[in-house]
Write a protein that binds this DNA or RNA. Structure first.
Length: 207
DNA sequence: CGCCAGGGCCATA
DNA sequence: TATGGCCATGGC
């Protein structure tokens, strides 16, 4: 593949043709998540297998911990117990509470969703660039492209030589794609699917 | 059975 | 700024 001639939108269409629509949120789970649950998922999946995250999300749902308010009401030990299947449960319980407090400082989730700025989110302890962009894109419908470990491998598989720091890669994607939120969501999900199958995981290919 | 996952923080140099 | 240790469970 010739360097410098990669068309990212074409790459997106190839993945879409090969794997089909991923529709991460909300359609890939059996319930329709509220935006808060998307934020919870973004924290719980930090360096963690998504299957484990789903177990933890199921426990939270079963116990009706489905809002930042509820998250702040229950005891920390209780929250830790609920999310244990997702690993790093002490850290993550603390991070969930911190995020819940931050969200509530806006006066509720809807206000947070409309007003939060990326800079502010990045200052929250436990929210790094990937988690921030996941929240902004999937929960707040903001046009930020999410970069993760799979994205780095994907970019390198295209033979593109880029500085691989987070911000450079994010701008690389954002500057070469239409500013389309649905496209960002779907492309990132497809890249993850590509990475999983490459690792010999994921579901069998059917088309 | 070992390897490692849809990161991020912190201490150290 | 750049490495390295740490966090922890469950899938495969």
């Amino acid at each position: 593949m010739a360097r410098g001639q990669v068309n990212l939108f074409d790459e997106y269409r190839k993945l879409l043709r090969e794997f089909g629509r991923q529709e991460w949120w909300p359609a890939h789970r059996r319930f329709r998540p509220r935006a808060w649950e998307v934020c919870v998922g973004a924290i719980l999946t930090q360096n963690t297998n998504w299957k484990n995250v789903e177990r933890a999300l199921d426990v939270l749902l079963k116990n009706k911990i489905i809002s930042p308010e509820k998250t702040l009401e229950i005891k920390t030990e209780e929250l830790e117990k609920f999310i244990r299947p997702s690993g790093f449960y002490r850290q993550k319980a603390a991070r969930l509470r911190t995020l819940a407090e931050f969200v509530m400082s806006f006066g509720g989730f809807e206000k947070f969703r409309k007003k939060v700025e990326r800079r502010e989110l990045l200052k929250v302890k436990g929210i790094g660039p990937e988690t921030a962009d996941s929240i902004l894109l999937y929960a707040c419908d903001r046009p930020f492209f999410v970069i993760d470990a799979y994205t780095r491998r994907f970019v390198s598989s295209l033979g593109i030589r880029k500085a691989d720091d987070y911000e450079s890669l994010r701008r690389y994607f954002e500057s070469r794609l239409p500013k389309d939120i649905s496209l960002y969501k779907e492309f990132h999900a497809l890249i993850v699917e590509w990475g999983k199958r490459k690792n010999g995981r994921g579901n069998a290919v059917k088309r």
